[in-house]
């Protein structure tokens, strides 16, 4: 394949990955890796490097809007970043030593889990109670709402959420993904923070988490400019297309459809992992 053909295919693929990522709420990176490895025959390590670049770009692009609107909880994000960055450093070091086949299988499993989670029902009951540790760390907050002006919420189970964030960071470091699904579970499922705050804070944290593994990726040679640039541009275009589509259609119906695509990709990754090992 010549560079020109490769670049065009990559750009097209990244646009598709970015669109699916934004419509399914899973982010561009997670769809991008199967596309690069299964369709374009790129080694998973290079795919991981490119995915990380796209994660930082989409996180910075969309977090800009969330931070300005005041929905993301900056103190909470900052505190939990201790766990995610520590996890990400460990993960990035591990990923350099792990064989491609193991990474494929782990990726497939993380993908399956994220797809299942995107279909989960979210409970929208605001819990105003905070645990003593959450109060010491000033983790409770308020977010603006059209109907009621501002909604106050509390934070519970700080230790549990912090541990889950460590795991999210570890996966992010090994796989180059934002692992948004795991971050949201830590905040919305374990710490009982409103879903809207969880997703925006998770997005806000992705950039810093990815930064922790990016230096290691650079040193290990995961970052290939010829792969990263078309991916970066494509995923950003895809994210824009995705958000336009979301404005005019019902995301619920789309989510089921994309969950099927993602399960299919996940099974393919697991299969290719096992095949590679034999």
């Amino acid at each position: 394949m010549t560079l020109l053909v490769f670049t065009l295919l990559l750009l097209l693929g990244a646009i598709i990955a970015g669109t699916i990522g934004s419509l399914s709420g899973l982010g561009g990176g997670i769809v991008l890796i199967p596309l690069l490895t299964l369709v374009l025959d790129v080694d998973i390590h290079y795919a991981i490097g490119a995915a990380l670049v796209s994660v930082i770009a989409t996180s910075s692009g969309s977090a800009a809007a969330y931070v300005k609107s005041g929905v993301a909880n900056i103190r909470l994000g900052m505190f939990l970043e201790i766990a995610t960055t520590a996890g990400a450093v460990a993960g990035a070091i591990l990923s350099a030593y792990a064989p491609t086949s193991y990474i494929s299988i782990l990726f497939g499993l993380a993908l399956l889990f994220s797809a299942g989670n995107s279909l989960r029902k979210k409970q929208e009951v605001i819990d105003t109670h905070s645990s003593p540790l959450a109060k010491t760390l000033q983790l409770e907050g308020t977010y603006p709402d059209h109907a009621q002006g501002s909604i106050a919420y509390g934070t519970r189970n700080v230790v549990g959420g912090f541990s889950m964030m460590g795991l999210a960071g570890l996966l992010s470091g090994i796989l180059g993904i934002g692992s948004g699904a795991f971050k949201v579970i830590a905040m919305d499922g374990i710490m009982r923070i409103p879903f809207k705050v969880s997703t925006t804070t998770s997005n806000f944290m992705m950039g810093v988490t990815a930064l922790a593994s990016s230096v290691i990726y650079m040193q290990k040679g995961y970052i290939v400019p010829a792969i990263c640039l078309p991916v970066l541009i494509g995923v950003l275009i895809g994210a824009m297309i995705g958000s336009r589509i979301l404005m005019v259609t019902d995301p619920k119906k789309l989510r089921v459809f994309f969950a099927f695509i993602i399960v299919f990709l996940a099974l393919n990754m697991i299969y290719s992992g096992f095949k590679g090992k034999m």
Binding site: M1, T2, L3, L4, F6, D41, V42, D43, I44, H45, Y46, A96, T100, Q219, K220, G221, V224, A226, I227
Partner: peptide, 16 residues
């Protein structure tokens, strides 16, 4: 580099 052939099938680990 438009006509150069690309091949990213194998990962070459760097250590710099």
């Amino acid at each position: 580099h438009a006509d150069a052939t690309v091949d990213y099938r194998d990962f070459v680990e760097n250590d710099r």
